[in-house]
């Protein structure tokens, strides 16, 4: 554990609390892509199989994994059941097969061993890298977002961005690196650059999040 990893994980936790807070206080999941949230459940379910099949890492690791699995399922429940009328599938139109197909192929090619658990682990890493695309696509379509939604996205983007210095630190202290996680993580962070730019230049200056026409 190093400071970058810890702050990254806390940022990930914060993003989920911000999202839950947004849904509960506005009693609405407007502006949130159900597809992206469903992809996160898929990511966690396929990656955290190691809770059952893998080796025990730490109590911290187990608790965080259970939290991410539980909270992401709860968010789906809120969107599909409790606040269903506020969820508008007609603007959430990104085609999931464009993500699931390539991630499946990549996972079959790039993995640490050709076993179901390792293939699913790779799949989860690749899918996480692009899982935000339906959400960003939705943002692009509507052209604006509530401030709280942008705080959620910023915290979520910061999480993987902070993993990058964590990997550099671990490379120097442990002497090894994980090419699959690192390359996918760089792509994942890269997808947020546009968003971060507008977030910093507009939302943090107190303006509304609006995409240039």
């Amino acid at each position: 554990m190093n400071i970058f990893r810890l702050i990254g994980d806390l940022s990930h936790l914060a993003s989920i609390f911000i999202l839950l807070h947004k849904i509960q206080t506005t009693r609405s999941c407007r502006g949130i892509s159900f597809k992206t949230q469903a992809l996160y459940v898929t990511v966690f379910a396929t990656r955290y199989l190691d809770l059952i099949f893998g080796e025990f890492v730490s109590v911290y690791n187990v608790i965080m994994k259970l939290f991410f699995l539980g909270s992401s399922c709860y968010i789906l429940y809120l969107m599909k059941m409790k606040y269903k009328p506020t969820n508008d599938p007609s603007i959430d139109t990104f085609r999931l097969e464009y993500l699931l197909g390539p991630c499946t192929v990549l996972a079959l090619i790039f993995n640490f061993s050709f076993t179901p658990v390792e293939i699913l682990w790779s799949f989860s890493i690749f899918l996480e890298a692009v899982a935000i695309l339906p959400q960003l696509f939705m943002l692009q379509r509507t052209g604006e977002a509530e401030a709280i939604t942008t705080h959620y996205l910023a915290a979520l983007g910061a999480y993987r961005a902070l993993y990058i210095p964590n990997w550099i630190y671990r490379y120097y202290t442990e002497g090894s690196w994980d090419p699959i996680a690192v390359l996918a993580g760089l792509v994942q962070t890269g997808l947020y650059l546009d968003f971060f730019y507008i977030y910093v230049t507009k939302v943090l200056q107190g303006q509304k999040f609006e995409l240039p026409a």
Binding site: S58, K65, A181
Partner: peptide, 10 residues
């Protein structure tokens, strides 16, 4: 196979 790094990240 490449040597498998520990999957301890979340």
């Amino acid at each position: 196979d490449v040597q498998k790094p520990e999957h301890d990240e979340l």
